[in-house]
Design a protein around this nucleic acid. Structure first.
Lengths: 215, 215
DNA sequence: GGACAATGATTGTCGGACAATCGGAGTGTG
DNA sequence: CACACTCCGATTGTCCGACAATCATTGTCC
């Protein structure tokens, strides 16, 4: 069978959810902003029930929060949330790093790092590529369920970051930071690699917390 | 304010989902069994849209699986699923064990073990208490998101176990097994504690796999 | 000024409707 | 008999309209 054009077989609900995800990550919707069912239904020209299902999907992913009888709002990250997210990431990613040190194939991690380096100039792309590198560490465990958890965690973070003006450090430095981590994994020194990851995440956490809180 | 009876403020959707969860864990619905929207709507005497929302909730939890245009069936665990679940549990629970060795408060773990010991005689209760003990290990990390992941993993397992006749080992032995793990955590020997957990989970995995596959 | 009642907006739930899709039964063809 | 095709019933996906329940807010009264 030769090249066949891809047919979109997704449901309306899924397409609405995807559209909202895009708006969320693009920062077009700010944390705390209410998402009204009727308004969205009219805007997308779909039925209210379809919007409800899409919102429930996003709620399950943690991107939006449902307040019973009062509607859905874009999830707002508290400092406790940020603490939790980075704590969970440390658990998952350090497990991935250990797997890497123990011999898991690092090809995908290297590819993610290269993609990150290429995207470093573009703000929006860089954030995505950066988090994908971290997720690729978790993927060293070869466990789809853990990878899904990691994706969920980083998605929540993107949510908080999208709406904030980017005062990021020199992009080159950022990439170099991650290159060092990969080098440590390759060196086989588990202690050092995990310690570097921990240091990196701790720094990122304070950076994120400073930007998100009180916004 | 004196004793006030608790008012059920849950939505109809949530109550339907809870009812289905109960039936799932009780084994009244077998893996692979289709859940028809109209049938459930009539059985619970609610609207079809309400059933749809409840099913979407359960699908997000992984208890049921949605096949587009063909409906929802009780999730069937393949051997790959079991591999994944136990792999993920090892990551989460070993992280919890490390936190315990490092000094996290073990009171809740001890309480879960005691509850397990009390419930050991009743088949259904014991399964639940057993998994709650393991979840309490993850809770040593003090991270609600990781605890939620652990709950999701063990819930999926209960699903597979509920429908299978229980050929379990002597309950006393089971409890003693876990008591040993707690003792190792208290001893402060990280290596030994993690190794014991790994051994325990590996044994459980083969036991579960033998019971679930080909059912 | 604060308890309280009226109001308006929004969600939660219901019922019915219909097109799209799927699996399977039946039919024909080689 | 194996295979391809068509038709059909069952079920889901999506839409619409309706209404009670709930909440935040505004306005009222003492």
């Amino acid at each position: 069978m030769a090249q066949v054009p891809v047919i979109d077989r997704s449901s309306t609900t899924e397409r609405v959810a995807e559209a909202l995800r895009g708006m969320l990550f693009a920062g077009e919707l700010s944390p705390g902003e209410p998402l009204r069912e009727v308004g969205l239904a009219e805007a997308f020209d779909v039925a209210r029930s379809t919007v409800r299902e899409a919102l429930q999907l996003l709620a399950a992913e943690g991107l939006v929060t449902r307040y019973p009888n009062r509607g859905v709002v874009v999830t707002e990250l508290t400092d406790a949330d940020i603490e939790e997210i980075f704590g969970a990431r440390l658990v998952l990613e350090s497990a991935g790093v250990r797997a890497g040190v123990a011999g898991a194939d690092l090809q995908q991690v290297a590819a993610s790092l290269a993609a990150y380096a290429r995207a470093a100039e573009d703000e929006a792309l860089a954030t995505h590529a950066h988090l994908e590198f971290h997720n690729s560490l978790v993927d060293l465990l070869g466990n789809p369920r853990l990878l899904a958890s990691a994706h969920s965690l980083t998605a929540d973070l993107r949510l908080g970051l999208a709406s904030v003006e980017r005062v990021r450090r020199n992009a080159k430095d950022q990439v170099a930071d991650h290159r060092r981590l990969l080098r440590l994994i390759r060196s086989g020194n588990e202690k050092a690699a995990v310690a570097e990851l921990q240091r990196h995440l701790a720094a990122a956490k304070t950076s994120v917390a400073a930007r998100v809180i009180g916004s």
